[in-house]
Amino acid sequence: MNAAVEVAGLRKEFGRSVALDSLDLTVETGQTHGFLGPNGAGKSTTIRILLGLVRKTAGAATLLGRDPWRDATELHQQIAYVPGDVTLWPNLSGGEIIDLLGSLRRGIDPVRKKELIERFDLDPTKMGRAYSKGNRQKVALVAALSANTDLLILDEPTSGLDPLMEEVFREALAAEKARGRTVLLSSHILSEVEAVCDRVSIIRAGRTVETGTLAEMRHLLRTSVDATVSGDLPDLTRIAGIHDLQVEGDRLRCQVDEAGLADLLGALSAAGVRTLTCQPPSLEELFLRHYSRPEPEPVTGTAV
């Protein structure tokens, strides 16, 4: 039982519409896995299948080595879940709801609960109806993070949180990771995923289009280079892997593949480089590269 979540060729149809079409996802135990995709890509559907709330049409899905539909009740002892849009019982207080949810999992750690309530600056005596969107989200987050579970499933958990609270969430998540908990984090806030995730899967229109560590993914991307030189610029177009080259006097801007980076830097230092800014590829570029394509294509694994 190495992988906490294993999904292969997962398919889900709602009537005639296909929500998931051959989706693959593997989350290793102890890792934090980012689950990225635009709105409507099927992130929440996948999670709801993993939670046994919705039945898969075809394909394989196992959670902690078991069937998420059949063994839902026992599995959920070990899972804490935060939905992206939390609805609370209007006439129960936040504190009561946290404890109620804890009682449906493997109990909660009262010390951690108290600490998290403080750090998230949550008033647990307010009634469910009185909370704002961000505060409702905090109630579910405190309930999940303080639960004694092995696996955290978070579906856009920070929607509605302010940047300060997002930071608190990142710290709390890092602490959970250090504690050895496995996390599946669905999000479209890329900086958040970049900051906390070991591995990332990107899905589009119900299919996995890219999966791997962030380092692996960066391989596939170009570094942006912005430089000024004192001497004459050589003909850089001969360097393999250089793109979007713009030259204005002594200033140069371009994109370069990993393979061409050494050649480019050699040429620049020969020309007497005065200033140099190299921007590593961001997840955002990766994301945009996949989503700006009109048609979903199968994973190729090679750079463009």
Partner: peptide
Amino acid sequence: TSGRAELLLSGSVGR
């Protein structure tokens, strides 16, 4: 329909 069932049933509760 409100989504509260989702929150509950993600816990260890049978249908």
